[in-house]
Design a protein around this nucleic acid. Structure first.
Length: 479
RNA sequence: CGGGGUGUAGCGCAGCUGGUAGCGCACCGCGUUUGGGACGCGGGGGUCGGCGGUUCGAAUCCGCCCACCCCGACCA
């Protein structure tokens, strides 16, 4: 058989990633360059991501709504930085119903403008604030180089847009949602992330401050896994979002926006996967357990099937997402490999020997071979499985965190910085000048990722120019 | 947009000193199999990226176009 084995990560990480995405049936290439089809298994993962995030959004007082896909071109042009940032990657509709449009419509690359326009109509008084709206949707950005999930012309995400009476409230919201993303990434995705502030060069077009969560992939490149922006009054002024305060004086509102996209699926793949395929965190996995029946004879088949159904029902009743692979056309060995490719956290095998002994064989996806294999009594299995899933979730986070921490370096000088960013991240003092940032990028292709705030570091000297520096920043090659 | 490469069955490829298309995998049928990627037999499937030229005859030679991939300048 051809293509049984994945290209190993240490041979060609990109190729490994592409093969996983295709062979785990997460996504496929669309007929249009740079566009992707999210297949049912990939979308099921996305739905679990959505649920985990949406719950957190609701818990922090947000509500969902839907804004249109098409935005008048003139809206984009109202915020100077915004249009400069996005104009190179806009898709524009110029014909509708066979007629040339009077004003071109852009397919939203993000929705600050049209939402700002609506907010200006809805917000009249301080009593209307804050407005805390999120939308789940898709956006289009005409990227040149694309990768499935990581960068495609169209992608799915959520974008939160909030308006507040005061600067402080808006800053707090920016931080709150960054914290929500970090909590989600760490506790649901088992993806360790670093929270911090983006440099001026890396920030969102139109924001005063952008913050992000940054994750390290297994090739040590950084992936921006979510962003939260403090937009100050930039969009409020561009779209006239004004309210009367308690003193009856007219004020501009303060707005924020924050987003997390299907790119996070790429983060999960590249954080956890191994040379057998995906490894999904139990809390997000579409199937947490796959049951594989094993039998030879007819009579074995009958008793195995009975046990499989019983175990399935018991696990399901305990709230565990379980799949039975009862395909007759492939062998158990094939199924083992198949579900390992798809990253199901736990495999349960039930065969004649288990019927005899009242057990099942259990194999952990995160621990290949004998190490992860055990035999458990059928009685009380749901509790044991639930415990195992918790343990898998925990050890996945621990492993990813250990990997990341062992690839973050504190270079002594610039020469060492240029070396360490080839196989890790550098955490160094930076004077925050664009020139120093640019020099690192030109010399090494590494960019500043983020500056963690409230760190324990005191003032120091810029790793590049030696001038005084207040903060440390992560330098890394990024996706 | 600059450099490099590839287009032949769903996927991966061979055929390229011109003679009307083949292999592996996948797929369909039947049978035997099933605790780590099963096997046998039978079968279906192709405007050879497109257009034009050379020729009795083009997947093959020539020209133009198109698409996609990889590497560089921008990005969730």
């Amino acid at each position: 058989m051809s293509e049984e084995k994945l290209t190993p990560r240490n041979v060609d990480f990109s190729e490994w990633y592409n093969q996983i995405v295709m062979r785990a049936e997460m996504a496929d290439y669309a007929p249009v360059r740079g566009c992707m089809i999210v297949r049912p298994y990939g979308w099921a993962l996305w739905e679990n991501i959505q649920q985990a995030l949406d719950r957190r959004f609701k818990d922090t007082g947000h509500v969902n709504a839907a804004f249109p896909l098409l935005i008048p071109m003139s809206f984009l042009e109202k915020e100077k930085e915004h249009v400069q940032g996005f104009s190179p990657e806009l898709a524009v509709v110029t014909i509708g119903g066979g007629e040339k449009l009077e004003e071109p419509l852009v397919i939203r690359p993000t929705s600050e403008t049209i939402i700002g326009y609506m907010y200006s109509k809805w917000i009249k008084s301080y009593r209307d604030l804050p407005v805390l709206i999120n939308q789940w949707g898709n956006v289009v950005r005409w990227e040149l180089r694309t990768r499935l999930f990581l960068r495609t012309l169209e992608f799915y995400w959520q974008e939160g847009h909030t308006a507040h009476a005061t600067e402080q409230e808006a800053r707090e919201e920016t931080q709150r949602m960054l914290d929500v993303y970090a909590d989600f990434a760490i506790n649901e995705g088992a993806v360790p992330v670093i929270k911090g502030v983006k440099s001026q060069a890396e920030k969102f077009a139109g924001a005063n401050l952008s913050a992000s969560i940054e994750a390290m992939m297994q090739d040590t490149r950084a992936l921006q896994a979510g962003t939260s922006h403090f937009l100050a009054q930039n969009f409020a002024k561009a779209f006239n979002i004004q309210y009367l305060d308690v003193n009856n004086s007219l004020q501009y509102a303060w707005t924020t926006s924050w987003g997390l996209s299907t790119r996070f699926i790429g983060a999960i793949i590249m954080t956890h996967g191994d040379d057998q395929g995906l490894i999904l965190p139990p809390r997000l996995a579409p199937f947490q357990v796959v049951i594989i029946p094993i039998f030879k004879t007819e009579s074995e088949a009958a008793s195995v099937k009975e046990a499989v159904q019983r175990v399935q029902a018991a696990l399901k009743a305990a709230g565990i997402r379980v799949k039975v692979d009862d395909r007759s056309e492939v062998t158990p060995g094939f199924k083992f490999n198949d579900w390992e490719m798809r990253g199901v956290p736990l495999r349960v095998e039930i065969g004649p020997k288990d019927i005899e002994k009242g057990t099942v064989a259990v194999a952990r996806r995160d621990k290949p071979g004998k190490e992860g294999k055990s035999f458990l009594p059928q009685a009380g299995l749901p509790v044991a499985v639930a415990d195992l899933l918790v343990d898998i979730q925990k050890s996945m986070l621990e492993r990813a965190t250990a990997f990341r921490d062992s690839h973050i370096f504190d270079p002594k000088d610039y020469a060492e910085l240029t070396e360490v960013v080839q196989h890790g991240w550098a955490y160094s003092y930076w004077c925050e000048s664009p020139e120093c940032e640019k020099k690192v990028k030109e010399d090494t292709k590494a960019t500043t990722r983020c500056m963690p705030l409230g760190g324990d570091e005191g003032p120091g000297k810029c790793i590049v120019c030696g001038q005084d520096a207040q903060h440390k920043v992560y330098f890394a090659k990024a996706y």
